[in-house]
Design a protein around this nucleic acid. Sequence first.
DNA 1: CCAAAAGTGTTGGCTGTACACCCATGT
DNA 2: ACATGGGTGTACAGCCAACACTTTTGG
Lengths: 213, 213
Amino acid sequence: MAPDPGRTVAVLVVIFTVRDGELQVLLIKRSAEPFKDAWSLPGGRLTEGSSLLEAATRRLEIETGLKDVFLEQLYTFSDLDDQGSIVVAYWALVDPASATLARRDEWQPDWHPAAVLPDLAFHNDRVIDLAAARLRNKLAYSNVTYSLLPEEFTLSQLQQAYEAILSLQLDKRNFRKRITTLGILEPTGKRASVGRHRPAQLYRFRERRPVVF
Amino acid sequence: MAPDPGRTVAVLVVIFTVRDGELQVLLIKRSAEPFKDAWSLPGGRLTEGSSLLEAATRRLEIETGLKDVFLEQLYTFSDLDDQGSIVVAYWALVDPASATLARRDEWQPDWHPAAVLPDLAFHNDRVIDLAAARLRNKLAYSNVTYSLLPEEFTLSQLQQAYEAILSLQLDKRNFRKRITTLGILEPTGKRASVGRHRPAQLYRFRERRPVVF
DNA sequence: CCAAAAGTGTTGGCTGTACACCCATGT
DNA sequence: ACATGGGTGTACAGCCAACACTTTTGG
């Protein structure tokens, strides 16, 4: 049996944020072939000796400067290009204010509304749609949003994040009741008056890591 | 930039069934090194030119003779061995009566209770535990069990399958109410008296493919 | 004083759960 | 006749959804 050459394995990361009241994704403008000038998700070949999670974590940090955020494996594709490459996709949630986007000459990274995507290289739109579906789903039974907002935030901010992701309006009283009785938040005691009129109670997540209800 | 050799990519399949009132997994006894004489999940290298789903489908058919059953991607591991191989795991549900286990000299395939696993090669126990958790979870909101039973079955058989998987007892009246009001089953009109006393109404799944409630 | 967001309870419907008995059949 | 599994209804509790007004503050 002749040793088989092995497969090309790549890691992609779908990095979501909520900005301007909508769900946005971090995309990169390619300056090299193939798909020069097309947008695509950040990612790259899996290098010798690193694990998938390490690769995804590193890519996320390169693009945003962030390390301790929600990051989870999404799905593994073998049909995104026609070379049969194996692409392991991850997804992450970040706070737009704490993210510092990489500045490169070759690749322009920027946020894009997840609802209206430009033409994307390598069927990356399928990957994003799948990630968005998973996100909407997880809102219902996990604390994933812990890394979408600053460490301390108001209930209104949290509600706006939920509304942006689900693209629907939620009832304020029901939202507050539900979210507070879950016991995943704790009030800080402080109040914030950032741009608002009446200062609001600040909360933080008890756990800054994935928890399911 | 020197071309990188690529990675070893393998596909594993966790094949579940319910037999003897318990959840069981199909394991293979290895007759070659490494891990000679240890049990492991069926699987193999991903060969040139085939997609992941094709590879998993083929492996499933080789082991059980079955094609049109529930089969879904589970997770992708990069740390099961210490060579950094990429292992894409799938999981499936089959009816033990319709499965015809492969007979080989080198590899002995057989069913094993998922609750008490023997020592397994390559951390395959982690893979099985993850698959079992996913299965228990999916019972609640999908029709995955459509390929666990013969095409026509009684509500008691279905309930027994649920009970085996969840390892808990369910109330008969509540189970029947819940499952029938979901609208995923249809009565066939026929009745069966297989080994039973009073012949029971037979049902079938309306859809023999994954549906979420 | 006005605009903007914070904060707060109650009701009705629905869903899920607990619970026990009679019936039809095969042996 | 008896043992075995098939089949059925009700009552209570907890959960979710609908719904509107007052308060505080900044400008």
